[in-house]
Amino acid sequence: MYVCICMAVTDEEVRSCIAAGASTIEEVGEACEAGTGCGSCHDHIDVFLEAARQPSELADLPRSA
């Protein structure tokens, strides 16, 4: 799924940037350019950042069935 349409960045790319140490929207943008266009994806990126800071018990479940 695309998180950032302007820069064609997927959710997997955003997760990868966060796993590599990006902890702000700006740092994600520097790593993969997500959020550096119109900015409408900032809320989506923020959800991924918050999920990385506060993992739920669902985080251990497989992503696809």
Rank of each mutant, 00 (worst) to 15 (best):
S16T: 15
C4Q: 02
R63I: 10
C17K: 07
S56C: 11
E13G: 03
T36R: 13
E30C: 03
C4R: 03
C41Q: 08
A34Q: 08
D60T: 14
C4E: 02
V14I: 06
H44D: 01
E50I: 00
E33N: 15
A65N: 12
S64P: 00
P55Y: 04
I18A: 00
L61E: 14
D46K: 04
E13W: 03
H42Q: 11
V3A: 00
A52G: 07
I45P: 00
I5L: 06
V28S: 03
C32M: 08
A65P: 15
H44I: 01
E57D: 14
I5V: 12
L61D: 08
S56H: 08
I45F: 01
P62C: 07
I5N: 05
A19H: 04
F48V: 02
I25W: 01
A65K: 13
C38Y: 11
S40R: 07
G37V: 05
L61I: 14
S56Q: 15
A8E: 15
L58R: 11
E57R: 14
G37T: 13
C17G: 06
T24N: 03
H44S: 02
T36Q: 13
D11K: 12
H44V: 01
A34T: 09
A51W: 01
A20I: 00
I5E: 09
L61P: 10
G39V: 08
